[in-house]
Computed example of a mutant assay.
Amino acid sequence: MINYVQHCDPYQRAQARFLADYIDKKVMETGNLIWCEEREEKEAGKKGFAEFMKQMESELGDKPFFGDNGFGFLDVALITYTPWFKTFEICGDFSIQQDYPKLSSWVKRCLEIESVSKSLADPDNIYNFYLTIKKKRVI
């Protein structure tokens, strides 16, 4: 069952919108730095991504999903970026599963939802896309 944000009280809706905006800004901002060739930028990206992931694990807490009543607005906001995680891990030389076990378990739960698993990009395709761009030196 999907928990739509409009069913929350006004404070919860505002909080959810704030966190969705935070997700939109931080994932790709830090991810783009992770795959940089410059060591300083890469390290800044890894540090920023780690802070982001810790914040999201804190927000998730011990709940199965970010929404109080199941898969909801914030779950949708974050799960769409998870296919990029493999590329970030390879380029940044870290392990999301090892470093962020709560979020790794959350991803697995989300992927058990058929509509989610069918709609996300393949992480291998994302990584191959990155390699193609890197060869062309666009990054």
Rank of each mutant, 00 (worst) to 15 (best):
Q6G: 11
N125T: 11
V27T: 15
F73N: 09
T30W: 15
Q15T: 15
E112T: 07
A16D: 09
Y11L: 10
I2H: 10
R13Y: 08
G31P: 03
D124V: 05
D122F: 05
E38V: 02
C8G: 06
I126K: 12
H7W: 14
K26P: 00
K135V: 00
G48K: 06
K102D: 03
E112W: 03
S95L: 02
F65P: 09
R39T: 12
P64Y: 13
D122T: 07
S95R: 12
N125M: 12
S119A: 14
K54Y: 02
Y127G: 01
I126E: 07
E37H: 06
F49W: 07
P101C: 02
V107M: 06
W35E: 05
N32G: 13
L60P: 03
E114H: 10
V76D: 06
Y100K: 00
G45L: 00
S119Q: 10
C110Y: 00
D62P: 05
N69T: 11
L131C: 09
G45V: 01
S119K: 06
K135H: 03
A121E: 14
F52P: 04
E29K: 14
V116R: 07
D21C: 02
G72Y: 06
K118M: 05
I133R: 15
Q15V: 11
N3E: 13
D24K: 12
F65R: 12
F49P: 00
D75N: 04
D93I: 07
E112C: 02
Y130C: 04
M56T: 09
L78F: 08
W84L: 10
E43T: 08
Y4G: 10
L120V: 12
Y4P: 08
S104L: 04
I126Q: 10
P10M: 02
S104A: 13
F85W: 04
I113E: 00
P10A: 08
V138I: 15
I2R: 11
K26M: 15
E59G: 03
F71L: 14
A50V: 04
H7D: 12
E37F: 03
A20W: 01
G48D: 00
F18R: 11
E57G: 01
Q12S: 09
A16Y: 06
L74V: 12
P123D: 03
K26S: 09
I79V: 13
R39S: 15
D68V: 14
Q6T: 10
N128S: 15
Y127D: 08
K26I: 07
E114T: 15
F18T: 09
L78P: 00
T30F: 14
Q55Y: 10
L111I: 05
R137D: 07
M1Q: 07
N3Y: 10
R17D: 12
G48Y: 06
K42L: 02
K47F: 07
Y127T: 07
F52A: 05
C36E: 09
E57H: 01
S58Q: 11
E40S: 10
V138E: 08
I133D: 08
L19D: 07
S115L: 13
K25D: 11
L131N: 15
R13T: 11
L33M: 06
T80F: 03
D99L: 02
